[in-house]
Design a protein around this nucleic acid. Structure first.
Lengths: 326, 326
DNA sequence: CCTCAATGTGTAACCGGTTACAGCCATACA
DNA sequence: TGTATGGCTGTAACCGGTTACACATTGAGG
């Protein structure tokens, strides 16, 4: 490995001068600069980030903590984050937390040990001491921390949109799958939907669900049609759960959307490929990832930030599990 | 941030002794050890990995380079890698290459600058100088580099299995979607299928395809039924492409599997959720990720390795886009 | 001709760890 | 009693950069 000393020797200058050239700081004579640049090129030198990071107590690394990259919603977030970070020369250290506090703490610990300059996390508990006691810039992604930087979609509005879509398309006996209690964004969606249905004095039922995993979702889908067989409209807590509902409905010989309409949440890539294609509330996951990255970069670089919490818009995506409107 | 000096002062010993305690090296008196351990606990000290890494010229970081985490096949690989690495205390620096050599080089560069101890890559060109000139352990994942460590599925056998499955289930006029020419694993699948059909003297056509993206796949699906309308069996280059074929078949009013059978490759999570659910050749993506991680760890730690190239088994997964066999 | 500021460069300390080496003490053994 | 040996600890060099500071040179202005 070639070091700054090699370059200095090769160019016949001191390491300080080489450092000045590669960082474009201080005074360097034009001729000297050229000599150094030639040496750098000739020796194919690139500075060791570790040494830099040690002295500066800052790296170009960002920690990214997601519950599970295997869940089809998260790759899009991750990609958005990565693309934006890459544009500004930051790299990602990545971890799956499996929603376990233990793992989260573990990762945060090693992130710090590696001098990351910031952290993007989709945690269920932004108020845990693991985060509050951190003196790193943190941005919460797809999660809400009232007074701290976060980027999330307008779940409340999403819930309303879903309820309204079903209503307008003739569903009378709606069942809402509530989504995990400990995930604030899921509860916002639920509240949005429930709220609107109550306003409109529409009859609805609620089925509690505990996770977003498909295997569990099948169970709740069964339970849904078991307990509320008269249901003619389902608002699922996300697209995975909606898919399970769709399958169960078909298994029971119900026609979708004629016997029962289904709406999901997220608009993961899968949704448009199902048959019937899933109507859903779209979250702009990729853009959310980018926005979070952008926000974090501003925080890291000390650029003044006007909006520390960014709420992204959601939209109803009409496909084939809901009636065409007129 | 508390440093080793703080701990040393607090415990009334030298930094060397503290270092010995936390690394369990050299001689340390039992009483001293306890004092140091207490100080560590009290100050909540964890060693700075960056400083360590600088002196040792080795970190606990691994580079992971995938084409696109947004493609549903890769998260499973990534997760496998991550889980195994995590078990041995390694962290991942992650990047999407988009199959661009430029980006690959860029990432490899910064991986090196961060003293990663190894690299796992799904590159299309393992023989590029970017890899051959590297003096880091590299494991190629889902890609084949004849003489260098790699983990991949048996595509040839997969192709054969696919062809055989269609044949046994009565397809007479089979079309194979060839898959990108520059991806060796895709060509192996193709060759396996073509091989078997030739052996059995079965009539088949080939449609060339250039990528795995869904948007492109729709185009080729159209082309397929356009050029070879009599096709009664399709071997797709992967599940994404198979999904597009499935959609096109349904759009054309063809019954699947009665008019045309379809087989994919990969068995991504999506496949079982489609209706009809997609029959496919399964690659054990998660396990492949784990295996690659395991191999790399052995390489990094200098453990003797017997098999530097690991070929994982594939299997036919019978679902609803092929006839049930009797 | 003197002074001062701007330009240009090198020396050495520093970041936070690891480790070679030297030195000290206690015990064992001749 | 002298000496070798093992146990234990501290000092300081080192990893590869950055930067404070000192110093030299040059040209402008009085």
């Amino acid at each position: 490995m070639t070091t700054i000393k090699d370059v200095a020797k090769h160019a016949g200058v001191s390491v300080a001068t080489v450092s000045r050239v590669i960082n474009a700081t201080g005074y360097v004579h034009e001729d000297t600069r050229r000599k150094v640049e030639d040496a750098v090129k000739e020796l194919n030198y690139t500075p060791n980030e570790v040494a830099r990071s040690l002295y500066k107590r800052k790296s170009r690394l960002i920690g990214l903590l997601l519950p599970d990259i295997t869940n089809p919603y998260f790759p899009q977030l991750a990609r958005g984050v990565e693309d934006r970070m890459q544009e500004s020369g930051f790299r990602l250290i990545f971890g799956n937390s499996d929603e376990s506090k233990e793992k989260e703490k573990d990762y945060i610990q090693t992130f710090i040990q590696n001098n990351v300059v910031g952290l993007i996390s989709s945690t269920n508990d932004p108020d845990s001491s693991a985060y509050t006691s951190l003196d790193l810039p943190v941005v919460f992604l797809d999660r809400i921390a009232s007074d701290r930087p976060s980027v999330y979609a307008d779940g409340r509005e999403g819930g309303r949109l879903a309820a309204q879509a079903l209503m307008e398309r003739g569903s009378k006996r709606i069942t809402i799958l509530q989504g995990p209690q400990h995930i604030r964004t899921a509860q916002d969606r639920f509240r949005g939907a429930a709220e609107l249905l109550e306003d409109q004095a529409i009859d609805y039922h609620v089925v509690r669900t505990e996770s977003f995993a498909f295997a569990d979702a099948e169970k709740w889908a069964r339970q849904l049609f078991d307990q509320h067989p008269e249901t003619d409209g389902v608002i699922a807590s996300n697209d995975i759960v909606a898919t399970a509902v769709l399958h169960e409905a078909i298994r029971l010989g119900k026609k979708v959307p004629d016997d029962v309409q289904v709406i999901g949440f997220d608009d993961i890539p899968l949704s448009s490929l199902l048959s019937p294609a899933l109507s859903t509330i779209r979250q702009p996951a990729y853009d959310m990832g980018r926005a979070a990255a952008e926000l974090l970069i501003a925080l890291v670089e000390g650029t003044p930030v006007v909006n520390r919490t960014i709420q992204m818009p959601v939209a109803f995506v009409e496909r084939d599990t809901t009636h065409k409107k007129r």
